[in-house]
């Protein structure tokens, strides 16, 4: 019973991370490093909440969240892809901008309650012991997140568009020479990343804690960035990472109250970051499989004439 409850909360805790990190993975695969995930998630959260409250439709809310995230990402694209601004600095600015703008838009909505996103409840199946709540007791976004993993993996490895996207990210000059529109591909990838971050934010404000309060994303955007590196830019590994990060943060709480293990809670809290540092070190120090993980043109500005 306790184990089921823990697993169910791990799945929900991992969902916003999964969305944001998958989006960032696609953007980075195209060669763009967008550090503005936190800001895009906040905009997604406030956009989704505002629309869900005013229209009464959580579907419209989710779409608005995706739209708000994508819009922020397009702004980032304009600055870094068209005007060739530094991606790291622009990404950081995007987060700070997102914190302020979401607070401004959200101020009339502070203290407004919203019914939680409905959970799928399959008659009979949801009441099954252990597997019932685990497999059938979630809301639509949890499943959407899970579906996105194979979809993105398939897109990147099995479709022509995915191949082009990766080519642009691996070697922008070669891709350009062959005749691909590097900037257009990157705009699309960045917008997709923003939309996914927006849905991650929408999950927080519509399902996880159905409310809007300022800075409610509380650093999850940064964890998503770390996750992409941790997963070495592979969607399936990202799923494992998101559940690991989510799981550790939940277990840390249970370790205190129920004394699950004798590991100090602080050690558990450090684990995901420790793992990220280890992976980062492997990537930067070895030329083997790990060394090939990062997209070759990641973070490099591209100018067709150059």
């Amino acid at each position: 019973m306790l184990t089921t409850a823990i697993l169910v909360t791990v799945m929900t805790a991992a969902t916003p991370l999964l969305f944001a990190a998958l989006g960032e993975l696609v953007a980075e695969k195209s060669g763009v490093l967008n550090l503005g995930v936190e800001g895009m998630m906040l905009m997604g959260a406030v956009g989704a909440f505002a629309v869900a409250v005013t229209t009464g439709s959580s579907t419209l809310g989710i779409l608005a969240g995706a739209g708000a995230g994508a819009l922020m990402a397009m702004g980032f694209g304009l600055l870094t892809l068209t005007f060739l601004a530094n991606q790291v600095a622009t990404g950081l600015a995007l987060t700070i901008f997102g914190i302020g703008l979401s607070a401004l838009i959200g101020s009339p909505f502070v203290g407004t309650p919203l019914p939680r996103l409905p959970r799928l409840n399959v008659e009979g199946l949801s009441d099954l012991p252990i597997l019932g709540p685990l497999l059938f007791g979630h809301d639509a976004l949890v499943y959407l997140g899970l579906v996105m993993v194979p979809t993105i993996a398939w897109f990147l490895t099995r479709t022509r568009a995915g191949l082009i996207l990766r080519a642009v990210g691996e070697n922008q000059d070669s891709a350009h020479a062959i005749g691909y529109d590097v900037v257009a591909v990157r705009y699309a990838a960045v917008a997709f990343g923003g939309a996914m971050a927006g849905i991650g934010g929408a999950y927080l404000s519509l399902a996880y804690t159905p409310m809007w309060i300022e800075q409610m994303v509380a650093g999850r955007g940064w964890i998503a960035l770390a996750l992409v590196v941790f997963a070495a830019w592979r969607p399936w590994r990202l799923l494992v990472g998101a559940y690991l990060f989510g799981g550790v943060s939940i277990l840390q709480l249970h370790a205190q109250g129920g004394a699950l293990f004798n590991v100090p809670a602080q050690v558990l809290a450090m684990l995901p970051y420790l793992a990220t540092i280890v992976v980062l070190t492997l990537i930067s120090s070895r030329s083997g499989r790990f060394g090939l993980a990062a997209p070759g043109s990641l973070g490099k500005p591209f100018h067709p004439a150059g």
């Binding site: 909360t9 927080l204 996880y208 709480l253 109250g257 809670a265």
Partner: peptide, 27 residues
């Protein structure tokens, strides 16, 4: 009284997780 320390004054998601954890422990 069963305390759970979340090491933050303000993180809605984490606070909700702590509430869920406590409830699953019989609070």
């Amino acid at each position: 009284v069963v305390p759970i320390w979340v090491n933050t004054w303000y993180d809605p998601g984490r606070e909700a997780e702590a509430a869920a954890a406590l409830i699953s422990q019989g609070v």
